[in-house]
């Protein structure tokens, strides 16, 4: 599974497939904050210096590093 390029992903709705590439401790933390496999994730904005990224899961917005982004396994959801 590959991560999706930031510029391509901007504004699109994506699905979190898995968080396998994170350490166990980090995975637990991500689950607690609501980033669960199967959830929808949207890359809302890219901040001034290109990093961090602003994402949204459910109603909550997060700022996330490009490194973290690169470790996420995401899947694009085709818009109907």
């Amino acid at each position: 599974m590959q991560s999706i390029d930031v510029n391509e992903a901007l504004g699109k709705k994506l699905m979190i497939v898995s968080l396998r590439r994170f350490s166990v401790a980090k995975r637990e933390e991500l689950y607690i904050r609501g980033l669960l496999p199967g959830k929808m994730l949207q890359l809302v904005q890219i901040s001034p210096m290109g990093d961090p990224l602003i994402i949204r899961v459910d109603q909550q917005k997060f700022a996330m590093n490009c490194d973290t982004w690169a470790q996420l396994d995401l899947e694009e959801i085709p818009t109907c």
């Binding site: 980090k26 991500l30 961090p52 997060f62 700022a63 590093n65 490194d67 973290t68």
Partner: peptide, 11 residues
């Protein structure tokens, strides 16, 4: 180094 592990900030 602030690795990816350290940065997920709620907005």
């Amino acid at each position: 180094r602030q690795t990816s592990d350290n940065y997920l900030l709620e907005i």
